[in-house]
């Protein structure tokens, strides 16, 4: 459904994408993973024809550079911070986006995203999560077979994020091709059928999500005032799966995804005092992807 060959994009002297080639078949749920600045947004914008690029990109057989309008007719897009016309009500937003696709509005999508009671509410007063759901409803106008989501979970709380990932999995199961760009890897990984990892514009992994497991890491940041620092170092040293980094001044332990709380329990049992502890979201570590063999498919 989406095919890229030799896709490259430069912003001045910076290579945002370098020779990316892949195909995403119809009906798949692909995760586009990578740190901030890895090139995920640029890649999605190239698929939409919003950037000029080198190489070729096709959507449903349409060359995006030559026939972008036909390609975009197949794609619904939800950007990271959807800038929907704030003066319009939710129903009017759907009306506008349906008309832009030459279709009649499908208001039932307000119900499907849980906004039926907000149909007459101006978009500008919606919360971040509600705006994200309205953007999904707007993207579904015209019933596009391909859906692109650019970091849709970034401004959502955990519950809203899980609900969104469930929705995306359901859309994929209903036959749509879903591409989800994210730097938070663990939650949607189970639902995805495909994973693409970008690192500084290069595609370093393209294959089954399950094989990425070892490269998904989670950082635990301990803020210490001196006391207990040596004990914490010793505890981490006794766990070969955990990496230690003190370059920022704090003690940063990087654990395999899902094992952060194991470390926290061990720290608590040992009575090591910390001023503050922050557990970050799991994300993919491109260096581990490359080390484990890169292209996985």
């Amino acid at each position: 459904m989406i095919a890229m060959a030799g896709l490259s994009k430069r912003f001045g002297r910076v290579a945002a994408l370098a020779d990316v080639s892949t195909e995403i078949p119809a009906g798949g749920f692909a995760l586009l993973l990578g740190a901030n600045g890895a090139g995920k947004t640029t890649l999605l914008r190239c698929v939409l024809g919003l950037h000029a690029y080198e190489g070729t990109v096709r959507v449903g057989g349409h060359d995006v550079a030559r026939d972008g309008r036909a390609a975009r007719a197949l794609v619904g897009y939800v950007p990271q911070r959807p800038a929907l016309p704030g003066e319009l009500t939710c129903a009017e937003v759907l009306d506008l986006f349906a008309r832009l696709r030459g279709r009649s509005p499908r208001y039932e999508w307000l119900d499907r995203v849980g906004l039926a009671e907000s149909a007459s509410t101006p978009a500008r007063v919606l919360s971040g999560g509600m705006r994200q759901r309205l953007a999904l409803a707007a993207a579904m106008q015209g019933d596009p077979p391909v859906l692109l989501f650019d970091e849709p979970a970034a401004s959502l709380d955990v519950a809203a994020r899980r609900a969104l990932h469930r929705d995306l999995a359901a859309l994929s199961e209903a036959g749509r091709t879903v591409v989800l760009s994210t730097h938070l890897a663990a939650e949607p990984l189970a639902a995805a059928t495909r994973a693409l990892v970008l690192d500084r514009g290069r595609l370093v992994y393209d294959g089954a999500p399950a094989a990425l497991g070892a490269a998904i890491r989670q950082r635990v940041v301990f803020t210490m005032n001196g006391a207990g620092r040596d004990e914490l170092r010793a505890l981490i040293a006794g766990r070969p799966e955990v990496q230690l980094d003190e370059s920022s001044g704090a003690v940063v332990a990087t654990t395999p995804a899902g094992r952060a709380f194991e470390l926290l329990a061990a720290v608590a049992s040992a009575g090591i005092p910390a001023l503050a502890v922050r557990v970050e979201e799991p994300s993919v570590d491109p260096s581990l992807v490359v080390a484990s063999g890169g292209q996985g498919s």
């Binding site: 914008r45 794609v75 800038a83 832009l100």
Partner: peptide, 17 residues
């Protein structure tokens, strides 16, 4: 103004030249 708010990205992602 649309470019600044991000609305241009959403509009240009539609099937419009």
């Amino acid at each position: 103004g649309d470019r600044e708010t991000g609305a241009l990205e959403v509009l240009l992602a539609q099937p419009v030249t």
